[in-house]
Each structure stands twice: as C-alpha cells, then as structure tokens.
C-alpha cells in the first residue's frame, strides 16, 4: 500500500515535470516569448527592459532553470492587463468556479443516478428507452448552445431566473460564496444546470450499465430469496453496488467539469477562472494563460492521484492485487 502511494506520487511528479517542459517548449522555444510574455503595447525601451528583466536574452538552459525556479516559488508571471501576479488572479476566482462545478456534479448525480437506475431496471420498456434516447441527446447537445437556450427560455421569455453574474455572495472562511444566499443560488441554478447536462448523460449511462450488471448477480437474487421488499433490494442491494463505478468516474470527471466551466462561465458571465481565461485570451494576456495552464495541470494530476488512492483504499480487490 505504502509502495503503491509512493509509486503514484512519483508518477504524478513525472507528469508535472513533463508538462512543465512541454509548456516551456511551447512558450519559449516554438512561440516567441517576447510576443507571449511582454505586453504588445510596450514601446522599444520598455521592451528591452522587459527582455532583460525576464532574462529572455539568456541562453535557453538558463531560461529553463529560471522558469522552473519561478514555478517552484509559485511565481507564474504578471498579468499585463491587471498588472498583478497571474497566479493570485486565478486563485481569487477559483472558489466561484469550484462551487459551480460542485453544484453541477450534484445535479449530475441527482438526475443521472435515478434515471440510470430506472433505465437499467426496465431496459425494454418505454421509460427505459426514452431515458437512453434522452441521454444520447444530452451527449449530442453542445454545452454552449444549451446555455443560450436556457437563458432564452428561463431568463428572457419566462423571466424566472437570472442569467448573469454570481448574485449576492456571503463570506465563509474569508472566501465569498454564492451558495450561501438564496439570490446566489438562484444565480447558480442555470449555469450549474448547463454545466451538468453532459455529465447527466454520462452518469445515466454508467448507472444503467451498472444496474444491469448488478441485477444479474447472485446476491441480488439471494436478497429476493430472503423475502426483502423490492424497495430494499433496489435501493440498498442494487444501488450501493451500482454507485461504486459512478462515484469513481464522477471523481475523475471533476477536472473536466472545471474545464467546461470555461464555456458556461463565459455564457453566464460567471466570474470564475474560466471566464478569466477567455478574457485573457481575447486580450492577449499571456502570463495568465500560462499560469492557468500550469495550475490546471497541477489540479488534474492531483485529482487523478486522489481518485486513484481513494479507490485503492476502498476497493479491497485493488488493495489485494497491489500487495501480492
């Protein structure tokens, strides 16, 4: 077990290092770092000063070393637009993205698991087929277009829910959150639903496949042979087993939800890291892009590591196969 953790930790570090090299190569070797990292509106003198400051006149290996040491110190450059450390800008917006992604995941489970369960219990009936049809639709709907349609229907036509911003926030541990106020929740509803659509389909499919698999198991028949009520058999015996793969995948998908938040945030003007990224791209604020990239790499590697470790702690089979 301990060896397993160490191996995985090492693998994650290697991945991080590989990505750092890739980013460095992308920014400094292939791209022109002068374009990428220096404000294009700067004049000649400023430009020269900046080149010297960033060490862009140094040989490649020195530049790499200073890039790495910057990384290790958490110094990922300074935003041209905001004239502030890029990392700080991103971290500031992280809670907004985080709470949105979390609510989207909750939607995905709350809608997807029951739908998948029903589809798995009645695969031949109309409900089952209908749910599967809807899930293919969910896979095919582009997130951004669904977002627009949600705004059109619920915000423009019906006027039920707001479609821009975070609404009222309240501070918790010194961080502002929307989910703590009713107005904030109302603001979160549409973007979170939008972000959830694709994952709802995914969870539905997983839950359906899991249900069908579990239903064939002897222990389900044994549970029926014990005279348990159908509710107990389905909600305890089937559901608990079926949730294992669902939870694993949900964990792994959290990163991808954060990534897709870029789209949802720019549609719903949700001030998270994704919206910041798009703004930075359109304003050519490259240091922020590089910082965002490194931060997401870190986030992904961490999520993969955590899911893998949690999984190996909870699933006895993984644990046993590792120790042998």
């Amino acid at each position: 077990m301990f060896v397993h953790i160490l191996t995985r930790l090492f693998q994650s570090l290697v991945t991080m290092a590989a990505m750092a090299v890739l980013v460095f190569v992308g920014v400094f070797a292939i791209g022109n770092p002068v374009d990428l990292l220096i404000n294009p509106e700067a004049d000649q003198a400023e430009m020269a000063a900046a080149i010297a400051r960033l060490g862009l006149d140094q040989p490649m290996w020195r530049q790499f070393l200073s890039f790495v040491s910057g990384l290790l110190q958490g110094n990922l450059g300074t935003s041209f637009v905001h004239n502030a450390p890029a990392l700080g800008l991103i971290l500031e917006r992280m809670p907004a993205t985080f709470e949105l992604a979390l609510l989207a995941m909750i939607f995905a489970i709350v809608i997807g698991v029951p739908a998948g369960l029903v589809a798995g219990l009645y695969p031949e009936r109309l409900v089952g087929r209908g749910i599967m049809g809807a899930s293919i639709l969910g896979f095919s709907l582009p997130t951004f277009w669904v977002g627009l349609m949600l705004i059109m229907v619920f915000a423009v036509w019906l006027g039920w829910l707001p479609s821009t911003g975070r609404g009222e926030t309240r501070s918790l541990f010194g961080i502002e959150f929307s989910f703590l106020t009713l107005d904030g929740l109302r603001h979160m509803f549409l973007p979170a639903l939008n972000l959830a659509i694709f994952k709802v389909s995914l969870v539905t499919r997983l839950a359906r496949a899991g249900t069908r698999e579990v239903l064939l198991q002897d222990y389900v028949k044994f549970a029926r042979a014990k005279g348990l009520s159908p509710a107990r058999v389905i909600f305890v015996h089937v559901l608990k087993n079926m949730m294992i793969p669902v939870v694993t995948v949900i964990g792994l998908e959290f990163g991808s939800v954060m990534a897709f938040a870029v789209v949802t945030e720019s549609i719903f003007a949700w001030p998270g890291m994704g919206k910041l990224l798009i703004e930075s791209i359109t304003r050519l604020d490259r240091p922020v892009i590089v910082a965002y990239l490194m931060l997401t790499v870190l986030l992904f590697v961490t999520i993969n590591l955590i899911v893998d470790l949690v999984y190996s702690v909870f699933d006895p089979r993984v644990r046993l196969s590792e120790s042998s």
């Binding site: 198991q217 002897d218 222990y219 029926r224 042979a225 348990l228 608990k240 087993n241 294992i244």
Partner: peptide, 30 residues
C-alpha cells in the same frame, strides 16, 4: 414466505453475499 417459511441456500458462497454490506446488515434485514 420467502426467507421466512421457506429459505434457500445458493450454489456459490462467494457470490451470494452482497460485497458492500456487512454480514450483520444482511442478517438483520432478513
């Protein structure tokens, strides 16, 4: 009647108990 007046023991002991529930839970529910 099932599990009460008539009980059945299945063929494969490895597969008849639910892997995610404790033995106690599976007995008490019966």
């Amino acid at each position: 009647l099932r599990g009460n007046r008539i009980a059945m023991i299945f063929q494969d002991p490895m597969m008849t108990l639910n892997p995610v529930l404790t033995i106690g839970t599976q007995m008490i529910e019966t």
